[in-house]
């Protein structure tokens, strides 16, 4: 075998190994994100989730979506630090799961919390600053989810990145939404805010370029 052919063979084996790794990682993400969501909703429908299944579902989807967003934002720094470029291939999936949790959060608020009282739904979004902020963040995530399809990504070109930088704004808004939604225990929201700030500080240069 020539050395070129040998290199190609090694490369193919490596590529295969990475593809399998990405495939496995995606499988883990699907299981870890989807199964708990299904479990929570089936327990809640069956009234097996404590005294107030509505609140339980709201908290689970809210915190779960925030966790997934933070995880999404961790992918790039991780990939850079460990020179593991293949990690970037699961970023979109994580982001879409974060959005899906957010969607469940908003739909559960509409269907189970205000129970399709549309006037109350709209009034709450307008009158309650923490819900206004939450809805703003959700709108950003919605725009990012829609434009995450490859076709739109190519079409938007340079603007795509600009648009998707708004994920940083969304993360800050969600931390704020969390902070404002609790009655007195601000420790947990502050820890989340700190995590967001750390993740943003890792992108200091990029963000300052973007803001300029």
């Amino acid at each position: 075998m020539s050395s070129d052919a040998k290199n190609t063979a090694i490369f193919t084996v490596k590529a295969q190994r990475l593809r399998r790794r990405v495939w496995l990682l995606k499988l883990v993400i699907h299981c870890a994100a989807l199964l708990p969501l299904l479990a929570i909703y089936s327990l809640a429908f069956a009234d097996q989730l404590g005294a107030d299944p509505v609140k339980a579902v709201m908290h689970f989807t809210g915190i779960g979506g925030f966790n997934l967003l933070l995880l999404t934002l961790t992918v790039t720094p991780l990939a850079k630090t460990f020179r593991a470029g293949y990690l970037l291939k699961v970023r979109r999936l994580l982001g879409l799961y974060s959005f899906s949790y957010g969607l469940c959060h908003v739909l559960s608020f509409l269907a189970f919390e205000v129970q399709f009282d549309w006037r109350l739904f709209v009034a709450e979004i307008i009158d309650r600053p923490y819900i206004t902020i939450g809805m703003t963040a959700f709108t950003i995530l919605l725009a990012l989810a829609i434009t995450s399809v490859s076709a739109l990504q190519n079409k938007l070109g340079k603007n795509w990145q600009k648009l998707h930088n708004f994920v940083y704004v969304a993360a800050l808004l969600i931390a704020w939404h969390f902070y404002w939604s609790v009655k007195s225990n601000i420790v947990e929201p502050l820890i989340y805010l700190l995590m967001v700030l750390v993740l943003l500080s890792l992108r200091k240069q990029k963000i300052s370029r973007w803001l300029r």
């Binding site: 429908f45 097996q48 005294a51 299944p53 189970f112 919390e113 109350l120 009158d127």
Partner: peptide, 16 residues
């Protein structure tokens, strides 16, 4: 931070 005009009465029944 929220409306007091209505409430959810917790008795039995799940999400629905």
């Amino acid at each position: 931070r929220w409306s007091q005009a209505s409430e959810r009465r917790l008795t039995t029944g799940g999400l629905l």
